[in-house]
Amino acid sequence: MVEPLLQTRGISKSFGALKASSDVSLDLRPGEIHALIGPNGAGKSTLIKQIAGNMKPDSGTVHFLGQDVTALDTVARARLGLGRTFQISALAMEFTVLQNAVLGALGARGDVMRFFRPVMKDSALVERAREALERVGLQDHAATRTAELSHGQRRQLEVAVALTLKPRAFLMDEPMAGLGAGGSKRLTGFLDGLRAQAPILLVEHDMDAVFALADRISVLVYGQIIATGTAAEIRTNPEVRRAYLGEEDAA
């Protein structure tokens, strides 16, 4: 078996009486897309936050690249190579699209304490940023103010900024949300190729995308992983059907 790049071991997190994560162990292997699905409020975003370092688990550990990163903050984990997109876009809204991407490239290069040279004239950074925008199809919007982007375009920019980091693993929280059928299809194609660059832990409600992309799927219900397996295994798992997919069919 290949060594996982990213691994959680027995992560638990409670908000008062609510168990948002309960003994969650999952891993992400090189080259794969591992989808994390589950009903609203199941604790998917909460788990992503604990992996990314925004939130401390009550117990359990996170390992990344063979290293225990539980005690590290978001900044340190990002620097190790954890790229992340947010469910609710976290972008600098006053910036242009290109500036947001340049910020990512700057973070990746790590020499932020420069006080005189105009950053938007730094051709290495701008090049890297434009390349990322092109890959997600935002190249024509480089000069647009981020606040003026549609919801779906913001999702694409989130992905582009993560790309500028050239991370070792991606955490993506609902990148398809708000994209519409065409956009979602294009992003699906893109993520399909991206896994060769770095594996993706993908939280997604779009089942077509999940079943098309995922090498493995984990199902989270009430903070607990009730099943992990291939698309075929998950589709036929009776517990999953009862707890989750059944609801969807009925809806």
Binding site: A78, G104, L165
Partner: peptide, 8 residues
């Protein structure tokens, strides 16, 4: 959050 996520 954005800034932290890019490692700054």
């Amino acid at each position: 959050d954005r800034v932290e996520t890019v490692g700054i």
